[in-house]
Design a protein around this nucleic acid. Structure first.
Length: 347
DNA sequence: CATCCACCGGAAATGTTGGGAC
DNA sequence: GTCCCAACATTTCCGGTGGATG
């Protein structure tokens, strides 16, 4: 690691909050208006866009702007993926007190209701695909019926589902009526700006070549991965970061980026993803059955009991939510009903 | 037209965990 | 400690799916 090159490694962490967010002013302004509750009730929002389009970062910024007047809290549904866990998480963050398990979910709901009271409140569910898959709309229904809902804004962030309407029951949808905001993929110009602004903060002057940044910017639209890639290249470089260093760092970046995402999931997700990469070294496709076979092998290697194929089918869906795999669903035909799966590199 | 492919995915059943009440 | 219970995680069960094939 080169301390002289990198002023502050935290600047590349996903948790880092940049001063200036490239080309998302419109979205931020709209969100602020909807959540402020100035002209009307605090609204519910549905934010959708592929990975690395700035959904979470913009949301954090907006919440910061509301600080003082609003109380707010963000949970990622990769971890908080059930009714109970979400209520527990929100309550803990808002009150600062630990909430153990063993209560009735309705108990927690009542406590949350009380806590919200007359205070404008924004509750954000990031990676909401995971919750919706698991819990259906049970939680959303409860939250939408909460007393004092005019002060409560629920923000759902998804990168897979592009609408809430076909996911939840119509009674839930109609009481939420979330305003949908779409985050379009960044252009390579925008990625370039994101990289160079971040590089200016993180590196000592002139330590990164312009070509190095253009190379990344022309390759990917996922800002999170772009930044990760640049950080890996920086860590490997001894003096200046050249285009060649960036090219060399690609595979390692993909690997560590993927590992980071998988780190939020179970061992079985990892084994499953691993089986898949072993099966499809090129950009070839495999069917679910083959993947499951390979997965069972991997489990044996790792001395772990494999999960049922039904469960694995759900886990594959999770990998799809995370953008780690691409699946095409086939119904009938000579191949029967299955899906063709391929590993997906971050783009 | 019946049958088959090769799974999908909903629903119910079962297993597990951690608390509270006694 | 024992019993009961809610919340989950996972398994078991099973009715689809629609073109290809005989």
């Amino acid at each position: 690691m080169t301390a002289d090159l990198l002023n502050d490694p935290r600047i590349f962490e996903p948790s880092y909050h940049p001063e200036n967010i490239v080309n998302r002013a419109e979205e931020a302004e709209e969100m602020l208006k909807m959540l402020s509750g100035d002209e009307t009730n605090v609204q519910d929002l549905f934010l959708h866009g592929s990975h690395g389009t700035g959904k979470s970062v913009v949301t954090k910024q907006v919440l910061q702007n509301l600080e003082g007047r609003h109380q707010s809290c963000i949970l990622s549904c990769t971890k908080y993926n059930t009714h109970y866990k979400v209520l527990q998480g929100f309550l803990e963050r808002l009150t600062g007190e630990e909430v153990s398990s063993g209560y009735h979910a309705s108990d927690l709901l009542r406590r949350l209701e009380k806590r919200i009271g007359a205070v404008p409140t924004v509750l954000v569910l990031d990676d909401a695909d995971f919750l919706l898959e698991n819990d259906g709309d049970d939680l959303l229904y409860s939250l939408s019926r909460i007393d004092g809902a005019e002060n409560l804004g629920i923000v759902l962030i998804t990168s897979y589902r592009n609408s809430l309407r076909n996911t939840v029951e119509s009674r839930t949808y109609s009481s939420l009526q979330p305003q949908k905001i779409v985050f379009n993929p960044y252009t390579s110009k925008e990625i370039y700006r994101i990289l160079s602004e971040r590089a200016r903060e993180a590196f000592t002057t002139h330590s990164v070549h312009r070509n190095a940044l253009t190379y990344i910017a022309s390759s990917v639209a996922n800002a999170g991965f772009a930044l990760h890639w640049l950080r890996v290249a920086a860590a490997n470089a001894s003096d200046t970061i050249r285009e060649s260093a960036v090219k060399d760092a690609y595979s390692e970046s993909v690997q560590s980026y993927t590992a980071e995402i998988l780190g939020n999931h179970s061992l079985h997700h990892q084994l499953l993803h691993d089986s898949l990469t072993r099966l499809t070294e090129d950009r070839s496709k495999v069917n679910t059955g083959k993947v499951y076979e390979k997965y069972q092998e991997r489990c044996q290697e790792a001395s772990v009991e494999p999960l049922s194929d039904r469960r694995v089918s759900d886990y594959l869906k999770h990998l799809e939510f995370e953008g780690l795999i691409e699946a095409e669903y086939r119904y009938g035909g000579e191949k029967g009903k299955t899906r063709e799966i391929r590993v997906r590199k971050p783009v």
